[in-house]
């Protein structure tokens, strides 16, 4: 209250009335205009873990794309003579990548023992058939990501429209569609896969079909719940009173407002799908030999884990990194999109 006003110079002009400002001037918005997405991305950027995950995944995806055309060596080519070679880089001066292994208490240069020509080395070693593990890992990751991509596709093509229709129509349609979802989700995934295996041969095909049957359920549920609340929002009512058709309402109003839910859920369903494939391959009903996937690599590595741990370490590390990165990114996205955490 005790504003010190002695330093204010008052003069005759001080008390001259000033015409009120232009109202337009006052209503000007000075802050930069950010769309919802720009704002969300700004918030995402602040989340170090999510940003790091994002770039990590970007690199992994890039490498996988490269692997479609190029791998250091043919991932399925067998060199029985070069079986079970440990990892080695260049001249073997990097610890852990020396090409030497502990055999019965003695450090042995396995590369020399197998008479591998100088200049040939395997970054992550070879498996029991002498196949280059690095190339196989590249292929495996690519396959896992492909499965993730297909899972996204099912989420978007089946889950999203299913949820929107169910939520928007409401009433009987909704009841029936929800019963169908309940029935599907009450059957364990594994049972579905085994049923698939009875019909098809094991392989990418049956995994994909199994995912197609069950993978989109969570997405459909989330989208339906969100649609139910969006549908009573006044801007949707306003669109209806203006005469907008349901299809256009879905495209113009629902999907943009569902987009954050959809993006976040995809980020969660990709690792789920990857893990699902790995699990199936691991127990031997997934991708058939000789093709590599993260699951088959783990399964093969596990058999010799006690003696040749590197064969399992690297695929295990990679799958863990992918899973964690997707989850961290999804968490980050959720926080970024959720207005409640807005500062």
């Amino acid at each position: 209250m005790a504003d010190n006003t002695s330093d204010i110079k008052l003069n005759a002009d001080s008390f001259k009335p000033v015409a009120a400002n232009n109202v337009d001037e006052q209503e000007k918005i000075s802050a930069p205009s950010l769309t919802f997405f720009q704002d969300a991305i700004r918030r995402l950027r602040k989340n170090k873990a999510a940003v790091f995950s994002f770039w990590l995944l970007a690199i992994i995806i890039l490498i996988s794309i490269v692997s479609i055309w190029w791998t250091p060596s043919d991932p399925n080519a067998q060199h029985v003579a070069y079986a079970n070679l440990p990892p080695k880089i260049a001249n073997g001066s990097i610890p852990g990548f020396t090409g030497k292994a502990n055999v019965g208490g003695n450090i042995v240069d396995k590369y020399a023992a197998a008479k591998v020509p100088k200049g040939t080395y395997y970054v992550l070693g070879t498996d029991y058939l002498g196949r280059d593990l690095f190339s196989r890992l590249m292929k495996g990751v690519a396959l896992s990501l492909l499965i993730g991509l297909l899972a996204t596709l099912f989420d978007l093509v089946i889950g999203v429209p299913y949820g929107i229709i169910s939520g928007w129509k409401g009433g009987k349609t909704d009841t029936i569609m929800q019963r169908i979802i309940e029935i599907i989700s009450s059957i364990p995934n594994l049972v579905v896969v085994i049923l698939m295996l009875l019909l098809f041969t094991p392989g990418l095909g049956s995994i994909v079909v199994a995912m197609g049957i069950t993978g989109w359920i969570t997405m459909a549920r989330l989208v339906r719940a969100e649609t139910l609340t969006l549908k009573t929002q006044e801007y949707i009512l306003a669109a209806r009173t203006l005469g907008e058709s349901p299809l256009r309402i879905a495209l113009k109003h629902l999907i943009p407002n569902l987009s954050s839910t959809i993006i976040i859920q995809t980020m969660f369903s990709i690792p789920t799908a990857i893990f699902f494939e790995a699990f199936l391959s691991f127990i031997g009903i997934g991708i058939p030999a000789p093709n590599a996937s993260l699951g088959t690599l783990l399964s093969d590595g596990q058999k010799t884990f006690r003696f040749l741990p590197y064969q399992m370490w690297y695929p295990a590390a990679v799958i863990s990194i992918i899973m964690i990165a997707f989850n961290l990114l999804a968490d980050g996205l959720r926080d970024a999109f959720d207005p409640k955490t807005q500062e």
């Binding site: 009512l237 113009k252 109003h253 943009p256």
Partner: peptide
């Protein structure tokens, strides 16, 4: 739909944020 229009209560819910 042209002849009859509505103004809503909630200034936050009645405009599509996107």
């Amino acid at each position: 739909r042209r002849e009859m229009q509505m103004i809503f209560q909630d200034p936050y819910a009645s405009l599509n944020p996107r």
